[in-house]
Amino acid sequence: MFGLGLIKGLFVTFKNLIGPTFTVQYPNKKVGLIKASKYYNKNPFSLFKSRPLEGFKAIVGQAVIKEFPDQFPRFRGQEFNWFEDRCTGCASCAKYCPLGIIEIETHPGENNIQEGTSYDIDVFDIDIGRCMFCGICVEACPFDALHMGSGFERAIEKREDLVISIDELRSAEKRPSTWFRPQIENSSYKPRNEEIEDSHDVGRHEKPSKEELTERWVNER
């Protein structure tokens, strides 16, 4: 019968109409009282007491809460995480970058035992505007100093701001992605929830201490 297939198809459409929704209402979602009190982690009465405006909005289903899509710990995002005390200034990241957007300038450090073992970094610029987030610089880093970030909300007004300077890298939030860093992945680490302050936790290779370097380069010779 002509039209039977159409009816069969409309049945599928109807099933999807009343089924669970898949859409994430990023960044803001309008919810009612129950979900709002769950979001602020309070019961409805104390929600009224502490945030009366939100409470009244929630009664008519207009309370605004934040909603994010699922993000997985290996997500390669913006704002590179750089741990300065792990970095030796070897510039492997700059060499292995397919686009050549990392610029490093170093000079021999003050406390270097022998030239070539310790460098102080003057310039560490990453031109995010041309970065394609392939993560090869992170893969190349021999001392686990550079990590991919996990952010994705980094709209910038000026083109000059797209170049991340060494000060921005120092002051950035340390929420490294676990891309190519299995040592962070083994724990139950989620970049959105926690920050890693201690540079000791992020590395599988240890940066040699001054005593070890003295032993290796001065005493043995």
Partner: peptide, 13 residues
């Protein structure tokens, strides 16, 4: 579901 929606749909055919 996709097949039910499309493969026997007269307009698609």
């Amino acid at each position: 579901d996709i097949e039910r929606l499309l493969t026997t749909n007269e307009i698609v055919l």
